[in-house]
């Protein structure tokens, strides 16, 4: 799964640590998601999308859909 967290973070001028604190995870988890090494749970994905005030599929993209 690919994601645009880094883009949305930049748009909201938010650090990885700030985002992690907002959604209740460690900074390492945000880093792992951004690098595509970890796929978040539906709840975490929803929290992140809600924080950026967008839909989940605006932030997270399935590889097969992209292709």
């Amino acid at each position: 799964m690919k994601n645009k967290i880094k883009v949305y973070r930049a748009m909201h001028d938010m650090s990885q640590l700030a985002l992690a604190q907002e959604v209740g995870v460690t900074r390492q988890t945000i880093l792992a998601i951004e690098h595509g090494k970890y796929d978040p749970s539906l709840i975490l994905a929803a929290k992140i999308a809600k924080l950026f005030q967008v839909r989940i599929d605006d932030v997270f993209l399935l590889d097969s859909i992209e292709e």
Partner: peptide, 11 residues
């Protein structure tokens, strides 16, 4: 005051 465990660490 920081999160030390989350869904990734549990996994």
């Amino acid at each position: 005051d920081e999160v030390i465990q989350d869904e990734r660490t549990w996994k």
